[in-house]
């Protein structure tokens, strides 16, 4: 381990782009210890006692918010949830004003989910609290990529050298961007696949092979990661119908058979069964989709802990 335990102390986590491979390794290693906490009779440690964490969610997201909240509670932090509907943003207050008001409560960290790419960058310039990006627009969702990597490493023992196929709406996906950055930094062979209408320009430069052939992406893959197809994309003519999308790009047992025999199937959720993934695949023996949820808590505990850290030895 070349990253010291304080490598992340006092920093923001805005994206995987800001992390080195060593720092990613540190988070994943720390998450392993955090996962053990969940197996204890008392699933709570006092590490963040006295710290205040605000979960500021401008987009509805039960899954991510709950995961952060459980992680914060297991670390004994004081948490405050602010969802868009109950806050003053509806009255037209700017993001910066909202957050400066929250800062008056002296939060140590703000977990931010926002529909605008770069919202965390904007706040990081004006906030004293550390910002953890819980998804910003189409930009990044770093803790999702970290928990995906944790899950892969748990199953495969490594990340380097694995073929990872990521299939779905690449264009609008922050999960895709964070995952490509993370997996390529860690030496995985990343394949991204979508209809050409849903492939962001220049994706190869982020570190992925790009293909429109699901078969090519899945063939020999160690990991098959499906991304959610949002139903409203049909209106933008990105593809003609959900039925056709499933027929051409959906993950079926036949397509899974092209992957390695021990391949795992992942999905960041929420899933559209019968659109991007067949139920037989989602619920099949190779699916680690529920492990992802469990690991999300451990990874978020690690991130919270490492960002808050900076103590010296006894």
């Amino acid at each position: 381990m070349t990253a010291t335990a304080t490598a992340l102390a006092g920093r923001h986590l805005l994206g995987i782009a800001d992390l080195t491979a060593d720092e990613i390794g540190l988070i994943l290693d720390t998450a392993e210890a955090m996962k053990e906490v969940a197996e204890r009779p008392i699933k709570k440690v006092p590490a963040l006692r006295g710290k205040t964490v605000i979960n500021l969610f401008y987009e509805p997201s039960t899954r991510t918010r709950t995961s952060f909240e459980v992680a914060e509670k297991r670390l004994s932090a004081d948490t405050l949830n602010i969802a868009v509907a109950t806050s003053s943003v509806v009255k037209g207050e700017t993001l910066i004003d909202t957050v400066l008001n929250l800062e008056a409560m002296h939060p140590d960290m703000i977990v931010l989910r926002h529909a605008s790419s770069g919202a965390g960058h904007l706040l990081s310039k004006v906030c004293r609290a550390r910002i953890i990006n819980a998804g910003d627009g189409m930009h990044e969702h770093p803790t999702q990529a970290l928990l995906d990597a944790f899950t892969i490493r748990e199953r495969k023992g490594r990340l380097a050298g694995l073929k990872v196929a990521i299939i779905g709406d690449l264009l609008h996906s922050r999960v895709l961007r964070s995952n490509v950055l993370l997996l390529s930094k860690m030496g995985a062979d990343v394949w991204a696949c979508a209809p050409p209408t849903l492939i962001p320009r220049g994706l190869e430069r982020l570190g992925a092979h790009v293909t429109t052939s699901v078969d090519e992406a899945v063939r020999g893959a160690d990991v098959v990661m499906m991304l959610r197809i949002q139903l409203e994309r049909m209106e933008g003519n990105f593809f003609p119908s959900l039925r056709e999308y499933f027929n051409v790009f959906g993950m079926t047992p036949e397509r899974v058979a092209l992957a390695r025999e021990d391949a795992i199937i992942m999905h960041p959720g929420p899933m559209n069964r019968g659109v991007e993934i067949a139920s037989e695949v989602a619920d099949g023996p190779r699916s680690v989709i529920l492990d992802q949820v469990t690991n999300g808590v451990a990874v978020r505990m690690a991130v919270l802990y490492l960002l808050a850290g900076g103590g010296d030895g006894d």
Binding site: S117, M138, R174, R201, G202
Partner: peptide
């Protein structure tokens, strides 16, 4: 501008 940087930053092109 629709290009690599907008893609990376998640900005609509």
């Amino acid at each position: 501008h629709e290009g690599f940087h907008a893609s990376r930053l998640g900005l609509r092109g």
